[in-house]
Computed example of a mutant assay.
Amino acid sequence: MRIALLVFPGVQMLDLAGPMDVFSEANCQLGDSNAYRLVTVAPTLETITASNGMRFLPDASIADAPHDIDTLLVAGSPRISEYEENAGLIAWLVGQSRYVRRLGSVCSGAFVLARAGLLTGRRATTHWNSAARLAQNYPNVRVEPDHIFVKDGPVYTSAGVTAGMDLALALVEEDHGRGVALRVARELVMFVKRPGGQSQYSLHLAAQVTERSPLRDIQESILNDLSAELSVEVLAGRAGMSVRNFSRMFKRETGTTPGDFVEIARVQAARRILEESDTPLKKVAYLCGFSDQNGMRRAFVRRLGVTPIEYRQRFRGEVPALLETVRQAIAVT
């Protein structure tokens, strides 16, 4: 399979190097250097300077790119807006979309796919700090800002930077099975799948960047006492607002409803406890403010797609496996 990565001047180097290392390691694990044939493609065949200052020459330009591309991934760049308006590039992408088996993006590369109309009507994600802009600029895209990566048919989009490695690993698993993906993950000291598969950033960070101080105070009070009564009526009363006005302002400032914010905060707190301890599920639910263990289970399935038991087993199972791999490598050397 030929994997092409579309890059631009100012490319985020990890958006490129991360996925390439995953596919390259898959070749090693498969014992076939041609299982994935990697190629970098750029708008023009000129030396590219990445955002971190590294310089490299792409393998091909869009004018002479290979005709047998299986999977095309668009890397992100702080300068991505310059390429959204590149008519030749957009036309090339649209043409490629008719022939490639899979099309995807890493980080802000989603903006180029969206500009080409290739995300219209589809679910997609991007770096958490750019998700609101993607939703605003392309209202026909169903942006899911809290996912590490999203698959919608043959189109794949990932969150920022290192999430491109998660996406590449998922593609390896899709192509060659979980066993190969597990060996690649262990070699690169990665999770086969990040526990839960979601959550790009912490709500504590979201609270810190909220501009309006009354709402920032409310968010911090939620995070500091998750076991308290946190209904929208109670929160609106704390802010001295009507429920309607509070809900509207909260959604505008944070991008989520008060109820969703509280549930996500409780799930994130429960995740940390499940990762770090053997605390019984009933007590975890109590500590994090869920009505009961079943309420926590429903929230986990809704937010993460797994139950608390499955989450704990996945996390506690893969981490020791990775650590044991590292220990064995150290012992050999």
Rank of each mutant, 00 (worst) to 15 (best):
L5E: 11
L5F: 12
V7N: 07
P9C: 05
Q12V: 12
P19F: 01
D21F: 00
V22M: 00
D32L: 01
R37I: 09
L38Q: 11
V39S: 14
A42E: 08
T47S: 15
N52K: 12
G53R: 13
M54P: 10
P58G: 07
D64F: 05
A65E: 09
D68M: 11
D70R: 10
D70N: 11
G76A: 10
Y83H: 09
E84T: 09
A87M: 09
L89W: 00
I90A: 02
S97M: 06
Y99C: 12
V106D: 03
V112I: 15
R115W: 00
R115Y: 00
A116L: 05
L118A: 06
T120F: 00
G121R: 04
N129C: 12
A131M: 02
R133W: 04
L134M: 06
L134S: 03
N140P: 00
V141T: 08
V141I: 02
E144Q: 14
D146R: 12
G153N: 02
V155W: 08
V155Q: 09
G160F: 03
V161D: 07
A163Y: 04
G164F: 04
M165N: 01
D166I: 04
D166W: 02
A168L: 04
L169C: 00
L171I: 07
E173S: 13
G179P: 00
E187W: 11
E187G: 08
V189F: 10
F191I: 04
K193L: 07
R194A: 11
A207S: 15
Q208N: 13
R212C: 06
S213W: 06
I218R: 12
I218Q: 13
E220K: 14
S221R: 13
I222F: 03
S227M: 02
A228E: 11
L230S: 02
L230R: 13
L230P: 10
V232H: 07
E233Q: 11
L235Q: 09
A236N: 06
R238H: 10
S242D: 10
N245P: 03
R248T: 14
M249Y: 08
F250W: 10
T254N: 12
T257V: 02
E263L: 09
E263F: 01
A265N: 10
Q268M: 14
A269R: 10
R271D: 10
E275L: 09
L281K: 11
A285F: 04
L287Y: 12
S291A: 12
G295T: 05
A299M: 06
V301I: 15
R303N: 13
V306E: 08
P308C: 06
E310F: 02
R312F: 01
R312T: 03
Q313A: 15
F315R: 11
V319R: 15
P320C: 05
T325I: 00
V326F: 08
A329G: 14
A331R: 14
A331E: 14
V332Q: 15
